[in-house]
Design a protein around this nucleic acid. Sequence first.
DNA 1: GCTCGATCAACTCCGCCTTCGTCATCGTCC
DNA 2: GGACGATGACGAAGGCGGAGTTGATCGAGC
Lengths: 98, 98
Amino acid sequence: MTKAELIEHIHAAKEFKGAVSKKMLGALIDTVFAEIERAIRKEGKFSFPNFGTFVRRKRAGRVGRNPKTQEKIKIAPRVTVAFKAHQGFRERLNPRAR
Amino acid sequence: MTKAELIEHIHAAKEFKGAVSKKMLGALIDTVFAEIERAIRKEGKFSFPNFGTFVRRKRAGRVGRNPKTQEKIKIAPRVTVAFKAHQGFRERLNPRAR
DNA sequence: GCTCGATCAACTCCGCCTTCGTCATCGTCC
DNA sequence: GGACGATGACGAAGGCGGAGTTGATCGAGC
C-alpha cells in the first residue's frame, strides 16, 4: 500500500467523508510520521496501542562482505530502528497460533 | 511518545488548529494504523515515503530456551513484522555518518 | 519527469528471542 | 478529571536465524 492509497482509503471511510479533504489528510499523515520520527530520535521510542513499538537501537560495527565480489568490508556502527508488533497485532498475524 | 501526546502535538500544530477536533484526530490516527496493519497482513508490505517500510516476514521454528529455567523449548514458526527505515530517516539517525 | 525504493547475489556473526512475574503506565469510560 | 483494567516494559542467558552488506537496473510513486 502506498501513501496515496492510504489517503484514498481514509478519505473514503464514511466517518470522515467530507470532514477532511484529501489534501489536509495528506498533510496530517505526513505530520503523524514526522512526529513519530521525532519521537524515535529524541526519546528513542514510540508506541501505539494495539499496534506496536518503534525502538531506536545501536548496532555494533562488524565485518561484512560485498555480495558481488565477496571481498570483506568494514561496516561502521550505526543506529537503526526496530519495530515490535504488539500482542494483538501479532495474534492477528498468526491466525492459528493461539 | 504516547498516542495522547501524538494527538496533542498534531492538534497544536498551527496548520490544523481548529480544523480537526482531538476526538476526530484520534479516530483518524487509529484508522491510519488500522489501514497499515491491514496492508501488512493482506499485501505483506507498507511503505511511507521518506520514513520506512514494513515487511511481513516468516520466522522459522527453532529451539529456544526458557531464560528462567534454561530448559529447552520448541518455538513454532511464526509471522512477524520488520521495519526498515528509509534512507533519509537512516541518515537523520546517524548524524555524523555521511 | 525525476527521484527514490525494490531487487538480488552469498556469507557472517550480531543480537533477537524465548518465559514469566512485577510494576507502571496508558487508555478508556464514566 | 479520576479510577480502574489492561497491557507493555523489563531482565535473566544462550544459540542459531536472518539481516545486512554493494550496485546497477527497473519501475513506480510523487
